[in-house]
């Protein structure tokens, strides 16, 4: 029909500069710039307060501390964008660790054991995805149940006692403990995961469907998008990345503790929300979520260096979360 021809002639007359970033993208960038500014300001202030702060050693320790959790944040952010949430990530991290560790102790080589551990995590995601998309429960309740069940599975596998894995071969331990020219592998893996998924989320067609589904699920269905498929696979992806993090933790600690990762999910959701992910779905960026994680990490590190009692730290982190979300709400309600 002539619509295409009409379109082509107009296109020939004037080609608009494509790829210009719109209001939404600009707002996200604004928030990211704001977070960077706050983090930098905190770092500069801290460098005066404590001479140990701006040392490569401290920065590296800070990066290490949030790198592995950062991998989980990537999955959580994508899940928040689609309108879901996963409270079970802490348990799944632990499960992957415990399963891989137990398989290794039973004689499997550590790489195969790790792959099975990650696959088992993905399977937990698939089961949650089934309950969300086929049975029709919501993400919150499903993952709350999964959090408890999977934690129980960790205890069953280990019979409640930590698995000691000091026999892990050095080339596997290097995954969590080694470095490439002074840069720990942990950080390299983290940066790679972030770079890949940030790029995919901005550019890949498959991930665009995540935004459509989270923005207005009904409208996505009325655009021919199979939203239950999208929700299912994002749920699986989130658990898989948690499984990957669990394996790296195992290599780092050389042990698998059945209570590891309890409460981790709240830190991760907080980071994603500070970074701009909406609990209502439809918005969020991975870069932003990582900045949110970095902010929380800088604050924690500062509090330690300033010798603030540990008892105060959670309170202060909670207040930062509340402030970030309130500012966001204020900006949004002013705009519309």
């Amino acid at each position: 029909m002539s619509l295409r021809q009409a379109g082509e002639t107009t296109m020939a007359v004037e080609i608009k500069p494509a790829g210009r970033r719109g209001n939404i993208a600009r707002m996200a960038t604004l928030r990211e710039a704001g977070l960077i500014a706050i983090i930098l300001a905190l770092c500069i202030a801290m460098s005066f307060a404590s001479p140990h702060f701006l040392t490569w050693g401290n920065l590296r320790a800070m990066m290490m501390s949030f790198s592995i959790e950062g991998i989980v944040v990537v999955g959580m952010t994508i899940l928040l964008i689609v309108g879901g949430i996963d409270l079970s990530v802490g348990s799944v991290v632990c499960f992957s660790m415990v399963v891989s560790g137990a398989l290794f102790l039973s004689g499997l080589d550590p790489w195969t054991a790790s792959l099975i551990g990650i696959a088992a995590s993905a399977l937990i995601g698939a089961v949650m995805g089934f309950f969300v998309t086929v049975v029709g429960l919501n993400h919150f309740i499903t993952s709350l149940a999964a959090m408890v069940i999977v934690r129980g599975m960790c205890l069953v596998v280990t019979k409640g006692t930590p698995l000691s894995l000091f026999t892990l071969p050095p080339e596997f331990k290097a995954l969590g403990q080694g470095s490439f020219r002074d840069i720990p592998y942990v950080i390299l893996i983290f940066v790679m995961v972030v770079a890949i998924f940030d790029f995919l989320l901005r550019r890949a067609t498959a991930f665009r469907k995540v935004f459509y589904t989270g923005s207005n699920e009904k409208a996505a269905q009325y655009s021919g998008i199979k939203t239950s498929h999208v929700k299912f696979w994002v749920t699986v992806l989130c658990s898989t990345l948690a499984g990957l993090a669990g394996v790296i933790y195992m290599a780092r600690f050389g042990a698998a503790t059945p209570t590891f990762g309890a409460g981790m999910e709240l830190n991760i959701i907080a980071a994603a929300v500070i970074g701009g992910a909406s609990l209502n779905g439809g918005s969020g960026t991975i870069f932003g979520a990582i900045l949110g994680m970095a902010l929380l990490s800088v604050v924690t590190s500062s509090l330690i260096l300033l010798d603030v009692s540990v008892y105060w730290q959670d309170m202060i982190k909670g207040c930062i979360l509340l402030a970030a979300v309130s500012i966001d709400h204020f900006l949004h309600s002013r705009k519309f």
Partner: peptide, 11 residues
């Protein structure tokens, strides 16, 4: 309700 993604760009 089901026709548009209100908070997303026109394109």
């Amino acid at each position: 309700g089901s026709g548009l993604f209100l908070d997303m760009p026109i394109a």
